[in-house]
Amino acid sequence: MRYILPVIVAFLFIIEGTWFQVFFPASFDQDLYWMPRFAFVAIVFISIYRGAVHGLFFGIITGFFHDVVYSYIIGIYMFSYGLLGYMAGFNFSAVKSRPIVVLLIMLVGLAGLETLIYFMYTWTGVAFVGFEEFATTRLMPSLLLNGAFGIVILFPMRKIFQWIEERERMQENV
C-alpha cells in the first residue's frame, strides 16, 4: 500500500482527459471553459499533509506526464505543477487540522496555477486572450469546479493521510 498516493494522483490525472471529457463534453454554445485540475488538487493536499518536497516531486512528475501526453510543448506544466506544489506546502499542524484553511490554500494555489499557465501560454504564443476574458471564462469556472472537487475529496484524503501516518509510526516503533 506504499503506492496509494501515486495511484490516486495517476487515476485523477487519467480521468481529467478521459471520463471528464466523455461525460461532461463542452459544446459550441458554452462560453465558459471548465478545466479539470483534479490531479493538482490532490497534489496540493499531499504537499500540505506530507510536506513540500512530496508536493514538489508529485508536481514535477505529474506535470511532465501532462506535458508529454496532452501537448507538444514540454516544461510548462512540469514547472508550474512543481513550483506551486512546493509553495503550497504549509506543513503545520495548525493548518492541517483546519479543513477551511486547507481548502483556501488549495484555491489560492489553483488561481496561481491558472494564472501562471495563462502567462506562459501567452509567452509561447498559444494563448491570445485578454486577462479579463481569461479571468471570467477560465479562472472562475476552474476555481468553482476544482474547489467543489476539493471539498469532495478532502475528507477521504485526510483519512488516507492519517492512516499513512499511523502506519509510519507503527513501523518506527517496531
Binding site: 482527459g17 478521459t18 471529457q21 471553459y33 496532452y70 501537448s71 498559444v126
Partner: peptide, 14 residues
Amino acid sequence: VIERQPDRWTETIG
C-alpha cells in the same frame, strides 16, 4: 478517441 486535452488552451484529441 482516447483522450482530449483537458485545459482547452489548445484543442487536441488523442
